[in-house]
Amino acid sequence: MSSGLYVERETFFHKLDPRAKLVWLLLVLVASIATQFNGLKGIPVFASLVVALSLSGLGAGLAALLVVNASAFLAAVTLVWASMYSNQGNLLFSLGFLKITDYGLLVALGKFFLIICPVLAFVVFFSSTKPYHLTWALERLGVPSKIALTFTLALNLLPSALRAVKEVIDAQKARGLALDRGGPLQRLKNHLPIIVPVISKLLSDVWDLSMVLASRFVGLAKRTYVFEPSWRLRDTLFVLASTIFYGGVATWGLQPSL
């Protein structure tokens, strides 16, 4: 699954200024924190993320996919939270040592949203923000330009790295390599014929890439950003609407309800 990689689309979120999306991300985080003890109040935040996934062209189904993918971990976490609050509220049902109360369930749901909502917001941010704009935004946030460049260069090189890993895995499997054969330690060792060729390729690519970077004069002067994002009316409206919505939810979440 490559859910967080940039996807070229012409959607609402793709058109937004990365700064507007960063403010939105922060607001999602604040609203999730404020509603973490009452899952019902967290529902609007989660719903807004499902809408954001649709508006970024990724599809609302991705939220379900991410939840299913991490289901064992999320189930464990929410059950732990529910059992930690089993002394408060009315008992709904008990399952062996596990007692679930209405209050415990609300907290568990709130914590579930606290974990999953910022993750979904980051997925929307990364898949709708061009690596070029990401470098620009990171530099504006004070990240050293060479680190910002390294990060976006790595993101840009990732598809070819993934392709190389897949090619090596396919080639080794065709030669009879079975990754799932033997005990845990043997299975670990089975990965050696994959890792070694991939690293050998990396070693030969390093000089090629450094010469390319040199002939593109990377890091020599303060870079001009000609495709710099420009703040438009829609960004202002988006930030305003987000502030009102998430601000309202956060205020509601902080009010004692039980």
Binding site: L153, A154, L157, W207, L209, L213
Partner: peptide, 20 residues
């Protein structure tokens, strides 16, 4: 440039292997 290339390729390969 060699340091940038090393860091970027290490990151791409490490991230790629972790993901793949």
């Amino acid at each position: 440039v060699i340091d940038v290339a090393l860091a970027a390729l290490s990151a791409a390969v490490y991230g790629g292997l972790l993901a793949a």
